[in-house]
């Protein structure tokens, strides 16, 4: 079970003056169980890429295989979309129903599940995102706080029990604490099974949470790396004009001053600094 993308190319408004190559010959694989990060500049094609994964953008060139579903052939898009849950940027703006519970039930209901199952799943998802089910289920989603609304929207996707959860900048517009809460929530969700794909502009988040990271630059794939590969060497990151995560930045500044350390996350940095000092302080 994995997502295999081969030679994916996508052109918006082809053969017009507005033509725009958003993805150019992109090939990589996302394995089952990955917490997969996608980074790249604004307009580098990240959203275009993930919108292919559940068929919202029709495959025009190349091939995609999601857990055995070949998107180049005729496929059951209901099945695909319940396997690949998609949480877009600012998902709280998609809430529409009268109560939190019925909004969260929208996906499962469209899947054609039984009423009992729908209720079970809604309750499960609302609890999973850390909200008090009994208190919140009958409230209007429009009278919640921004952070709560985002959780409800997330629950609406989780209630479909996707095997792959795609998050497009899940922390955009939240304060540091809200960010951390949502990210820790994704780890909790991951324990329930799904592969997670996350787009983010925040390198600290990417370095701390992802095990593999794809770097897009102007529609082209620059490569897929582990956090230590990517942030340890810092050339690719600098060439693409992206920022280093804080621990890697500190490591780089130390290197510049002659202390030989490499690190991509905080624990790694602490270890590296300690061993560079030549002692074991634990």
């Amino acid at each position: 079970m994995s997502i295999v993308i081969k030679n994916l190319t996508h052109v918006y408004s082809p053969k017009t003056p507005f033509e725009r190559i958003a993805l150019d010959d992109v090939t990589f694989t996302i394995n089952d169980g990955d917490y997969f990060g996608i980074i790249g500049h604004t307009g580098s094609g990240k959203s275009t890429l993930i919108s292919h994964l559940n068929g919202l953008i029709k495959l025009t060139k190349g091939s995609i295989n999601v857990n055995g579903i070949d998107l180049g052939k005729k496929y059951d898009y209901k099945k695909l979309r319940s396997e690949v849950g998609m949480v877009f940027q600012y998902p709280e703006y998609q809430l529409f129903d009268e109560t939190v519970e019925s909004d969260v039930s929208f996906g499962p209901r469209n899947m054609g599940l039984s009423e009992d199952e729908i209720k079970d799943r809604a309750a499960w998802a609302i609890k999973l995102v850390g909200l008090n089910y009994d208190k919140i289920k009958n409230r209007s989603p429009f009278e919640l706080s921004g952070g709560q609304m985002r959780r409800v929207a997330l629950a609406g996707v989780l209630a479909m029990r996707p095997k792959v959860l795609v998050l497009d900048e899940p922390t955009a517009g939240l304060d540091p604490r809200g960010k951390k809460e949502i990210l820790d929530l994704t780890l909790k969700i991951k324990e329930q099974g799904p592969t997670i794909i996350m787009i983010s502009h925040n390198m600290d988040e990417i370095a701390a949470y992802c095990n593999r990271i794809a770097v897009l630059g102007a529609g082209k794939l620059e490569g897929v790396f582990s956090p230590s590969e990517l942030f340890g060497q810092s050339e690719i990151i600098e060439r693409l004009g992206l920022a280093l995560p804080t621990p890697a930045l500190i490591a780089k500044k130390l290197r510049d001053r002659g202390v030989s350390v490499t690190a991509s996350d905080m624990d790694g940095l602490v270890q590296a600094v300690l061993s560079a000092k030549g002692g074991n302080y634990a």
Binding site: N54, L56, R81, F88, Q94, G107, N110, V157
Partner: peptide, 8 residues
Amino acid sequence: NAQKARLA
């Protein structure tokens, strides 16, 4: 698109 992703 967001609602389509929820099978609307």
